[in-house]
Design a protein around this nucleic acid. Structure first.
Ligand SMILES: [Mn+2]
Ligand SMILES: [Mn+2]
Length: 293
DNA sequence: GTATGTA
DNA sequence: TACATACAACGCTGC
DNA sequence: GCAGCG
């Protein structure tokens, strides 16, 4: 056991040599180091967002479980937010982040709203999920189409890899729109994509009938979460959900962005998702499109 | 990974 | 003391 | 009504 001090708080870190990705010999200690390096970039994106996490106490090859409620026995300085009978952790500082990673958390899924305004979405999201044998390249093709459609609608979107084979496009918004509005927007974009690229894009909800890149517009709901930006994934490569520019989207592969490579990249290119925090857009000019659906 | 319940 | 168990569910959709 | 979905 190792005692560290983070932001003046004493943390007991356990099993630092435990392999979280045994195949890569990537330990919990190294994962903690990743988050220590990334904290200043990650925390603004997760601030005040009720957090769902996925824990792998024995590494990615072992069993996992989702966690929404702040567990009993957590430090008293952990901030929480209660809604609908669930007491969520707010990952608002580095000490909370480090404490959670020591608990075996690998995936962080922040809510799409802020605790301060739980009825209003911070962004709409276009979640592109390719089915087998379609892959990341197909998702990218749809993402680029999506960029054009959004621009025609007068909107700017910001892409990131999901860390698996998909792409997430965030459309940051003025915090005044409810989730029925963001759902209507994503659905309208999905319909336009399906029209522009039939055979490649699908809105089929039944997995066994689905073929192509699924536009998962139903992710736009207050009860839904998406893997957060800069969150690791329990993949063989220890990939990370990573913001990319539209220009590089066509020449990257999600497995090149990992727990081991991301700190260097962020030092080089900065936080490409920073605009998601500042470029808050209006949907008022789309009232007729989003009116009723 | 840790708290809690039960034998 | 030892061992088992919990740790998320919500709301919509298509049949 | 209920299974399927993420
Ligand atoms: Mn996805
Ligand atoms: Mn999805």
């Amino acid at each position: 056991m190792t005692i560290v001090e983070v932001e003046g708080r004493i943390l007991r870190l356990t099993n630092l040599d435990k392999p979280m990705w045994p195949e890569l010999n990537l330990t919990k200690g190294e994962l903690l180091h990743y988050f220590a390096q990334m904290a200043s970039v990650v925390l603004p994106h997760w601030q005040d967002r009720p957090m769902t996490v996925v824990r792998y106490p024995h590494g990615v090859e072992g069993p996992f479980f989702y966690q929404k409620n702040c567990p009993s026995g957590s430090p008293e300085w952990i901030h929480t937010f209660s809604t609908g009978g669930t007491n969520y952790v707010l990952v608002n500082d580095e000490s909370t982040l480090i404490w959670m990673v020591n608990q075996g958390v690998i995936e962080f899924h922040p809510a799409e709203f802020s605790a301060g305004r739980p009825e209003r979405a911070s962004y709409a999201v276009i979640d592109l999920d390719p089915t087998h044998p379609f892959g990341f390249e197909a998702a990218v093709e749809v993402a680029l189409q999506c960029r054009e459609i959004l621009l025609e609608l007068g909107l700017r979107g910001y892409p990131k890899t999901s860390g698996a084979t998909g792409v997430h496009i965030y459309i940051p918004l003025e915090p005044q729109y409810t989730f029925d509005v963001t759902l209507a927007l994503a659905k309208a974009v999905g319909v336009m994509l399906a029209k522009a690229a039939p055979g490649l894009v699908t809105l089929e909800r039944l997995v066994k009938r689905r073929q192509g890149v699924y536009v998962d517009y139903l992710q736009n709901a207050s009860s839904r979460t998406l893997v957060g930006v800069y969150s690791p994934r329990p993949t063989p490569s220890a990939s990370v959900s990573t913001p990319v520019t539209w220009e590089e989207l066509t020449r990257v592969h999600p497995d090149e962005f990992t727990v081991r490579t991301l700190p260097q990249r962020v030092n080089a290119v900065g936080d490409l998702f920073a605009p998601v925090l500042t470029d808050r857009q209006s949907l008022d000019h789309l009232a007729s499109l989003l009116g009723r659906s």
